[in-house]
Nucleic acid binder design. Structure first.
Lengths: 210, 210
DNA sequence: ACTATTTTGTTGCTTTTGCAACAGAAAAAC
DNA sequence: GTTTTTCTGTTGCAAAAGCAACAAAATAGT
């Protein structure tokens, strides 16, 4: 991410300065938070990877969002309208700042340093989130599995400034993320290889078209 | 929308106080802005309806987002990675505040009232945007046309606090919004009627299940 | 190092979705 | 009030995607 401030410093400086903010550690596969109950919880992922996943009534699992370091998440950002399970699950060991807030303007009665900084930096963090969500929507609205795959590969290629890049998660998870059937996706990947659109070696992908 | 401040007052009070902010009027079907060039433009829709639409290389049109009053939009929120056309088109007569800004912290050299207020209110406006984008993603990740339709109807029902509600746009646009083929969607709507899931009269829908 | 679990790669079959095309209804334009 | 345009509703057919199932490979667990 291209933030104008140093997130590590921000976190280090303030993680213990406010009693409304907790730093917690989660092991792989642990549930970091659920979006079902409204607790006015707002989180910043410091280290690790986590996914926001939905389990619907048919047992389908969808990766709604994928978080890496400095990502913000929490049910504040979510108006849950369905009764599906919505969980944030740690994909690896995660350190998370958890912040319960009362009002949306992010002010603290004690007007502590953490909250001052938070209100200064939060618009940027949230703006970043909007950008990534917009990209997600752009991907999901693609009509075919092929377009979704190529769209996603383009994104990773642009992000890494290289035609070769590594998929940030397993093919199983990628299918969940693009909201397509895994076997159908594998079939499409095979075709993309056969038609020389891509080269693939494990999780390493190379784009072969201009 | 449930904002903690009065948007009309906010707009009225400040629309002419800063020379970096312009108020413009657009007729139906006019292009309000394009996302292709980076101009650091940020807009607030005051009145009317507008859509963010993508035209891909095959001529497919997708409604990426739908804006109503007090919605914020603009290419600030967007990292364009594809070379598809991305336009905001007025669906009806629209009044728009257009704001060109230099830095992300929304400060103005003159430190004018508009910018003070903007930096106070913006997090809330953007947070609202995140919420609506999350709902959009939730819809788009549904596996079938049926689930998308029912998901969307649930949303409108919840929003209107009623099992009966009016679709905010045409069925043609709804198909574009849910990113499905129109005829396939019509077929599914017919089935939903036949199976007594919904009652439909023009754009009025009534949910018949608990 | 061995075992258990998860992931990958593949395929045949079924179901869903998309495409193309058209007629009638509704809405907008004149 | 008439014409033109857009929207709705429908269908047959083609294409794409989903489902189920399985073996091989890779990874994680002990």
């Amino acid at each position: 991410m291209n933030l104008s401030f140093n997130v590590e410093e921000f976190i280090k400086e303030f993680e213990n300065s406010c009693n409304k903010v907790q730093k917690k550690t989660f092991e792989k596969n642990e549930v970091i938070t659920s979006y079902i109950q409204k607790r006015n919880q707002f989180c910043i992922l410091i280290t690790g990877n986590a996914d926001l996943v939905r389990y619907d009534l048919n047992g389908n699992r969808t990766i709604i969002d994928h978080f890496t370091d400095t990502d913000v998440f929490g049910e504040v950002f979510y108006n849950v309208t369905t009764n599906n399970e919505l969980l944030v699950e740690a994909r690896s060991k995660c350190e998370v700042l958890i912040y319960s807030y009362q009002n949306i303007h992010y002010k603290c009665k004690q007007n502590c340093k953490f909250h001052q900084r938070l209100s200064e930096y939060l618009p940027e963090l949230i703006l970043d989130k909007v950008t990534s969500l917009n990209m997600r929507v752009e991907l999901l609205t693609k009509r075919s599995t092929r377009d979704k795959l190529l769209g996603y590969f383009n994104l990773l290629s642009t992000r890494n400034l290289s035609k070769t890049f590594k998929l940030p998660f397993s093919l199983t998870d990628l299918a969940d993320y693009l909201s397509v059937d895994r076997s159908a996706m594998m079939r499409e990947l095979k075709l993309l290889k056969e038609e020389n659109f891509i080269k693939k070696n494990g999780k390493m992908i190379t784009l072969l078209y201009k």
